Amino acid sequence: MTQPVWNDVDDYISGLLVGPDEALENALAASDRAGLPQINVAPNHGKLLNLIARIHGARRILEFGTLAGYSTIWLARALPADGELITLEADPHHAEVAKGNIAAAGLADRVEVKVGKALDTLPTLDGTFDLFFIDADKANNPAYVRWALDHSRPGTVIIVDNVVRGGRVLDADSTDPSVVGTRELATLLANEPRVSATMVQTVGGKGYDGFALVVVDS
Rank of each mutant, 00 (worst) to 15 (best):
L107Q: 10
E96Q: 09
D130S: 13
A118K: 12
I55Y: 02
E22I: 11
L28Q: 11
G65T: 01
G69V: 04
E96C: 03
W6F: 05
E96P: 02
G106E: 06
V41T: 00
P37Y: 01
I55L: 14
D91I: 07
A104Y: 06
A23V: 02
L24I: 08
D126T: 14
E22R: 15
T72C: 01
G35Q: 12
L125S: 12
E89T: 08
F64I: 15
K47W: 04
I73R: 12
P92A: 08
L51W: 14
G65R: 00
E89L: 05
L122I: 11
P123M: 13
E84T: 14
G100M: 00
L17T: 14
A68Y: 03
A104K: 05
A103T: 14
G65W: 07
W74K: 06
A95P: 10
V18A: 02
D11W: 03
D8Q: 15
R33T: 13
A90D: 01
G127P: 09
A108N: 14
A27R: 04
L49Y: 00
S31V: 03
D8M: 12
G116A: 05
L62F: 09
L119T: 13
T66Q: 06
G100R: 15
I39D: 09
A53W: 04
L131D: 00
A81K: 15
V5I: 09
K114N: 11
Q38V: 04
D120C: 13
A98D: 11
H94G: 08
L119D: 12
H45L: 08
G46H: 03
G35I: 11
S31H: 10
V113Y: 01
G100F: 08
S31P: 09
D21S: 14
I102N: 03
Y70H: 07
G19H: 07
G100V: 02
I39Q: 12
P92G: 12
G65L: 03
A29G: 10
V97C: 05
A68R: 00
E22C: 06
T128K: 10
A98N: 10
W6L: 01
F129W: 15
R54M: 04
I52T: 04
Q38W: 02
